[in-house]
Structures are given as structure tokens and as C-alpha cells.
Amino acid sequence: KNAAQIVDEALNQGITLFVADNRLQYETSRDNIPEELLNEWKYYRQDLIDFLQQLD
């Protein structure tokens, strides 16, 4: 998997990933985040941060 796929997957589930103060953050109206997504975000944290910062 790559960062773009993970960001896309999150968006499809109503979750927006973004970077604030060099930390990976998310916004969602969901009550909870599936644990497998959280684990994936932790595992790919630096890739996601790098990818999202390139988009800014």
C-alpha cells in the first residue's frame, strides 16, 4: 500500500487525514475509527506525513 491509497481509503470512509505541527491528524464525523485503519496510519505515519505535506 502507499500513502495515496491510505488517504483515499480514509476519505471513502468519511475521514480526512492532514498534518498539523508535523503530526498526522484526522477529522471525521464518525463515532469511531476502525482499529485496522488506526494501525495502518501508525505503521505508515511518516509516509503519510510526507505525502500530505507535498500536497500543501
Results as ranks from 00 to 15, higher is better:
Lys1Thr: 04
Lys1Pro: 04
Lys1Asp: 02
Lys1Trp: 04
Lys1Ile: 04
Asn2Glu: 08
Asn2Asp: 10
Asn2Val: 08
Asn2Ser: 15
Asn2His: 11
Ala3Phe: 04
Ala3Cys: 07
Ala3Gln: 02
Ala3Ile: 10
Ala4Val: 05
Gln5His: 05
Gln5Ser: 07
Ile6Trp: 02
Ile6Gly: 01
Val7Tyr: 14
Asp8Met: 15
Asp8Gly: 11
Asp8Thr: 14
Asp8Trp: 15
Asp8Glu: 15
Ala10Arg: 01
Leu11Asn: 09
Asn12Ile: 12
Asn12Phe: 11
Asn12Thr: 12
Gln13Ser: 07
Gln13Leu: 15
Gln13Met: 15
Gln13Ala: 13
Gln13Lys: 10
Gly14His: 05
Gly14Leu: 05
Gly14Phe: 05
Gly14Met: 05
Ile15Ser: 01
Ile15Trp: 03
Ile15Thr: 02
Thr16Asn: 08
Leu17Trp: 02
Phe18Met: 06
Phe18Lys: 07
Phe18Asp: 02
Val19Phe: 15
Val19Lys: 01
Val19Ser: 03
Val19Pro: 02
Ala20Gly: 07
Asp21Arg: 05
Asp21Ala: 06
Asp21Trp: 06
Asn22Trp: 05
Asn22Gly: 15
Asn22Val: 04
Asn22Met: 08
Arg23Asn: 14
Arg23His: 11
Arg23Gln: 15
Arg23Gly: 10
Arg23Cys: 14
Leu24Glu: 01
Gln25Asn: 07
Gln25Leu: 13
Tyr26Arg: 01
Tyr26Ala: 05
Tyr26Cys: 07
Tyr26Asp: 00
Tyr26Gly: 02
Glu27Leu: 14
Glu27Met: 14
Glu27Ser: 15
Glu27Asp: 10
Glu27Lys: 15
Thr28Ile: 04
Thr28Met: 04
Thr28Asn: 04
Thr28His: 06
Thr28Leu: 03
Ser29Trp: 10
Arg30Tyr: 06
Arg30Trp: 06
Arg30Ala: 08
Asp31Phe: 09
Asp31Gln: 11
Asp31His: 10
Asn32Met: 12
Asn32Cys: 11
Asn32Leu: 09
Asn32Phe: 14
Ile33Val: 12
Pro34Phe: 04
Glu35His: 08
Glu35Asp: 10
Glu36His: 11
Leu37Met: 12
Leu37Thr: 06
Leu38Glu: 06
Asn39Tyr: 11
Asn39Pro: 03
Glu40Gly: 03
Glu40Trp: 04
Glu40Met: 09
Glu40Val: 08
Trp41Thr: 02
Trp41Asn: 00
Trp41Gly: 00
Lys42Asp: 13
Lys42Gly: 08
Lys42Asn: 14
Tyr43Asn: 10
Tyr43Thr: 12
Tyr43Val: 12
Tyr43Gln: 13
Tyr43Asp: 06
Tyr44His: 08
Tyr44Lys: 04
Tyr44Asn: 05
Tyr44Asp: 01
Arg45His: 11
Arg45Pro: 00
Arg45Phe: 08
Arg45Met: 15
Gln46Ser: 07
Gln46Glu: 09
Gln46Val: 08
Asp47Gly: 07
Asp47Ala: 15
Leu48Glu: 00
Ile49Phe: 06
Ile49Glu: 04
Asp50Val: 11
Asp50Trp: 10
Asp50Thr: 11
Phe51Pro: 00
Phe51Gln: 02
Phe51Asp: 00
Leu52Arg: 00
Leu52Trp: 02
Leu52Val: 03
Gln53Pro: 03
Gln53Arg: 13
Gln54Trp: 10
Gln54Tyr: 10
Leu55Cys: 09
Leu55Trp: 10
Leu55Val: 12
Leu55Met: 12
Leu55His: 12
